Simulated assay, not measured.
Amino acid sequence: MNNRILTSTALGIALLSTAALASCSSGGGGGESQSDELAGLTGEIGSKDFSEQYILAHITTELLNAHGADVEANTKLVGSSNVRQALENDQFLGYWEYTGTSWITYNGNTTPVQGAEAQFDAVKEADAANGIAWLDPAPFNNTYAFAIRESEADALGVATLSEVAALPTSDQSFCIESEFSTRDDGWPGLVSAYGLSDGDVTMLDTGVIYTATEKGDDCNFGEVFQTDGRIPALGLVVMADDLEFFPSYQGGFTLKQETLDEYPAIADVIAEVSPLLTTEVMQQLNARVDVDGEDPEDVAIEWLEEQGLI
């Protein structure tokens, strides 16, 4: 082979290598888009002020940008009402909301709809009157729950709240937060619905409940949020709400209907990721932030890459 052929071959290999590197860099984190069906879509993806919401905002931002959009995540607002108002005022293009929050807090209902699907349908219809669209929800449900350390669940033989209510009073000890103690969808209603004993109740801050439940010193059963990453990290198991007392807090991406009308492909793009976001997956992602101290944006990008979505 002469030098001219060698040079041409080397040049070809170099060009192929450069193209491959460019292709690899076009995923998340601001790289080039994989497709352009959302070209022209700009704005901010909002979030509430906790880890799960940060992760969801970055997942959505990266995924939309991979399909031609040019959006950014804004994780600076505090409080559900402020985030909802930011959507209504067009500060946010969209954000992930929970069905129970919208039904009770924004739409003024006092009684939840039993069943996740029925609750979603009711919220979707109610918010349609407000000009806000709900895309198909993810399976995860960030509702209230009660958890116990796994070893004690096995020892007591309990897996549901009805079975907890059937335990001897001496085994029915609970750790709850102050707000939960007075809510209609909290402790008073739960005691009434299941016939629980309310004689041994310890009031603790939300974060402390998880470690107290793990140790078992203050209580056997602790009030938790079902997608919290500390549940699996601390070896806790959630008791099934077999009477469906707690409202469904299923997650779904919300945006203005006028935005969806202009960019209907948003629904198709979000549909790529929504079915993958189960309660177990959200627990794992939340744990990487709340337990392992990882950055929510990094967690979002790495997970999307693992799923082959960016």
Rank of each mutant, 00 (worst) to 15 (best):
M1L: 12
T7L: 14
A10H: 05
L11S: 04
L16M: 14
A22M: 15
G30M: 03
E32V: 10
S33A: 15
S35T: 14
S35M: 13
D36N: 15
D36W: 10
S51W: 04
L56M: 10
L56E: 05
T61H: 01
A69N: 02
D70N: 11
L77K: 02
S80C: 04
S81T: 14
L93G: 01
L93C: 01
W96L: 02
E97H: 03
E97I: 12
Y98W: 13
T99P: 00
T99Y: 08
T99A: 05
S102K: 10
W103K: 00
T105V: 13
V113M: 10
A116P: 09
A116G: 06
E117A: 14
Q119Y: 08
E125I: 14
E125M: 12
A129T: 03
N130S: 09
G131I: 11
I132L: 13
A133V: 12
P139S: 12
F146L: 13
I148A: 00
R149M: 11
E150T: 14
A153P: 02
L156W: 01
G157Q: 09
T160K: 05
S162C: 11
S162K: 01
A166H: 00
E177R: 11
E177I: 07
D184K: 15
W187G: 02
S197R: 00
D200F: 05
V201F: 01
D205W: 10
I209Q: 01
T211N: 12
T213E: 05
G216P: 01
D218Q: 15
D228L: 03
P232V: 08
G235A: 05
M239R: 11
A240M: 07
E244N: 15
F245G: 02
Y249A: 02
Q250H: 06
F253N: 01
L260H: 02
V269Q: 03
E272V: 03
P275D: 06
M282H: 06
D292Y: 05
D292K: 09
P296G: 05
P296F: 09
V299R: 00
A300W: 00
A300L: 12
I301C: 00
L304Q: 01
